[in-house]
């Protein structure tokens, strides 16, 4: 179970403070899949980072009673000067799993060939996404945080991601952020909508979309 209790996140901006998340509450049970809807800049990625523990809330509490992944996004979580292989080694070290037996999977899934031994900063966006996803599948978690990770890449890459994440790991909890309504509809049981820093949760996905569309014009 993950419990988000009364969480507030404010950032310092020029001329004062900006409240990105305003007294947010959310619960995620084991195996539950929740979609987060919101416009660009509504605070979806901030919420994901707070749940992952990479950032701390200004106030409120986040209780994690299961292991939670880092935010699986196509960009972050990698050091650009390190090679793909060294990034894999780094992540295996900090999560305390063995490395060498994971290399064949990452090699095969990422399809990077000899580029796996080149610095990540030389990769294209597609190559980064493939590496990011492959490394994400190396460490097992009870709950995966997915921030638009499958939004890039070609259809073959999408199929491979779907197989790894939604077939092989369908027993896990997931929190998904996506602009693609079809993606949320297909994979989530419930959805929550972020509007103006407030999070409203719906048991029914269609209700969530109705609410989202009704408030789409409101700027965060």
């Amino acid at each position: 179970m993950i419990q988000i209790i009364d969480v507030v996140k404010r950032y310092h901006v020029r001329g004062g403070e900006s409240t990105v998340l305003d007294h947010i509450n959310l619960q995620v049970a084991r195996g539950e899949k929740i979609g987060i809807l919101g416009r660009n800049g509504a605070g979806k990625s901030t919420l994901i980072r707070l749940i992952s523990g990479a950032e701390r809330p200004t106030s409120g509490r986040i209780i994690r009673n299961m292991s939670v992944s880092w935010p699986l996004a196509f960009g972050g979580a990698f050091q650009g000067s390190l090679t793909g292989l060294d990034n894999l080694r780094f992540i295996c070290r900090i999560y305390g799993t063995s490395t060498e037996d994971k290399i064949p999977f990452v090699q095969e899934f990422s399809e990077l060939g000899k580029y796996l031994r080149e610095p990540v900063k030389t990769y294209s966006a597609g190559m980064r996404a493939r590496l990011a996803f492959a490394i994400s599948m190396v460490v097992e978690f009870d709950c995966f945080l997915i921030d638009e990770i499958v939004a890039v890449g070609d259809s073959r890459f999408h199929e491979k991601c779907n197989l790894e994440l939604f077939e092989k790991r369908k027993d896990r909890a997931m929190i998904l952020v996506s602009h693609d309504p079809g993606f949320i509809r297909e994979h989530c049981q419930h959805a929550s909508v972020l509007v103006k820093g407030k999070l409203t949760s719906f048991d029914d996905i269609e209700e969530a979309f109705f609410y989202y569309n009704a408030h789409a014009a409101e700027v965060a």
Binding site: A54, W70, Q79, I94
Partner: peptide, 12 residues
Amino acid sequence: QPNLALMYHRHV
């Protein structure tokens, strides 16, 4: 700054 990306991982 050069390690910001690694701070995505809670333990870092």
